[in-house]
Design a binder for these strands. Sequence first.
DNA 1: CGGGCAAACGTTAGCGCTAACATGGCTTCA
DNA 2: TGAAGCCATGTTAGCGCTAACGTTTGCCCG
Lengths: 353, 353
Amino acid sequence: MDVDDERIEPVQLRRPAVMSDVGRLAGVSHQTVSRVINGSPKVRPETRQRVIAAMRELGYRPNSVARALATGRTNTLGVVGFDTTLYGPASTLFGIERAAHEAGYFMIVASLKALNRSSVAYAVERLRVQGVDGILVIAPHLEAAEALGYAPIDIPLVAVEAGPVELVPVVAVNQFAGAASATRHLLELGHQSVWHISGPSDWLESRERVEGWRETLEAAGIEPPPLLAGDWSARAGYEHGRRLSRNPSVTAIFAANDQMALGVLRAMHEAGREIPTEVSLVGFDDVPEAPYFTPPLTTVRQDFIEVGSRALRLLIETIDAGGQLASGSLVEPELIVRASTEVVRSHVDSKEV
Amino acid sequence: MDVDDERIEPVQLRRPAVMSDVGRLAGVSHQTVSRVINGSPKVRPETRQRVIAAMRELGYRPNSVARALATGRTNTLGVVGFDTTLYGPASTLFGIERAAHEAGYFMIVASLKALNRSSVAYAVERLRVQGVDGILVIAPHLEAAEALGYAPIDIPLVAVEAGPVELVPVVAVNQFAGAASATRHLLELGHQSVWHISGPSDWLESRERVEGWRETLEAAGIEPPPLLAGDWSARAGYEHGRRLSRNPSVTAIFAANDQMALGVLRAMHEAGREIPTEVSLVGFDDVPEAPYFTPPLTTVRQDFIEVGSRALRLLIETIDAGGQLASGSLVEPELIVRASTEVVRSHVDSKEV
DNA sequence: CGGGCAAACGTTAGCGCTAACATGGCTTCA
DNA sequence: TGAAGCCATGTTAGCGCTAACGTTTGCCCG
């Protein structure tokens, strides 16, 4: 039992190799190994080579948990999201992950069961305890956004798609502008008025789209028709669409998302009212299928990927700066004109057909 | 400088409270605090109460990084996924997160940039280094699935939606059965043959759907028509649909997903061929919008949430058992009959219209 | 030629927790 | 009444890493 401690010959140790194993094999201290890993310039090139060779030989992998304990940083970000099955949130999440990876961070996802204050607070707390370096909250809901006002201030936090919230920087799409451009587009085609099927009233996106629609009509001196409240689902679009199809004065509809627009499309088709010749329709989101609706849907494109990556960059800046400072930003949407909108025909014309 | 170390009066310390702070305030050792946190029965109720009160007073949060270093477990799972923007993967991810949360785990997502062997290997390695306790790979792609054969065997790993792979347990939807039931449904409606628009040939799901379709036709003594290769996109469905619309012998089409079915729908509508009276159409997936297509789409529902949660449970069993042992399972899909399929009319009948 | 000063490394002391063992006080029962 | 034994706790030693400081070279220059 003389050199029991020095049996370094079996290259493959039982347990995974740690830093000191590498150091021993390379004939240096574990600290030098650490320096090599962290790219310190204070290592002679030949030493560096020896260490790298030893790491390779032992199949060494740095233990990031130990590193996190020593440095106090986990290189991990938390994302709080609601229904990540929907196209919008899913794309945003995707954009975040891409950007996080590029920035050297990992992304932990925490889905919400419900959109209320305590649920958001719980998710944020959960992520905090897990040790994330920062948190991104995708909070399109009114109450969820409010919860951020009470969020802990000792961890960097950026909100995505939340309305203007105090104390927390927000990255979002300019919903108002999107809705306004959709409405303006319909008015420019000669429609006397534009009906709007909205999302749920407690969603911020929904509210701002309503405002964009309403103010655009009012600016044109048009009294907005009654608001039709939906819930983002194709079903809601279908139900409202059926009712609208019986109203011959309706010639232009702006649905607050593409799913509801799809429902309208079907209702109109069933009622024998042709789109776009009799009724023009605009959606919102520009889901990948929108060009293949019957007819292809005019809609407002939101660049979710951009929103996600911009929010992530903002969060990382906040982390690097060691606290809150950055202010949010707005991503501009883009009207995509397809075949579901058309210059309005006079009442007489459409009767002739 | 007598009691410099004992100034425990300021309840809010500068730095976050740690276990020994709690212990000091409660008059116990840090280890007893640890016992309380971990629910050890060997703590007197009154002591437990004191400790809990102290934790609350100090706003103590356990440091999970330190715990992970000491225990060797992070309570974190890694998920490797490809295009998580699509409905299927997004739903699977959602199901995984839900189940992970319930089981007390966090979910780290690593998206793939490309579907090839090295990309999968890289993502798995990345997650391993980050210290996850297990990995879930959503690998619907042939090469990606093959990469799992070379995956590290020293970390629990379960594949989702991968074809039969050796060495790795797989949870997937029974694609073959789904395609077979779709095809059988069309045959039972009296169609002489069924055309199939498939997904990309290097996707496992796509291959199995093709097999289900082909074998069902052959079992019925029908020579399968030429396979139409698509790429999951509505565009591909549209292109093939246009071609099929010019072929009057086509009365039944099975599209490998709902997006492509949507494209077919549009192509047929443009060509003036009515669905379902002239052509019956079946999709695959049952996306939420499928009931609101024009007409509502008959399709094969996949329970992605179930796939995700089942895969997760399997992974956790594997972790708890300390290694590979479990075998995978198949989730059965369900044919949802809607208005896009109809009993075939004789050639004469359809000419009469 | 010796003192000073970097460069290149080694040593030590934590990060905050858990696991394993040690200890003291109290019960239990021959 | 004392030895055995158990309950509730304390003590100690890591987990694998980094930060901070200490030490050894070698070289330059007055």
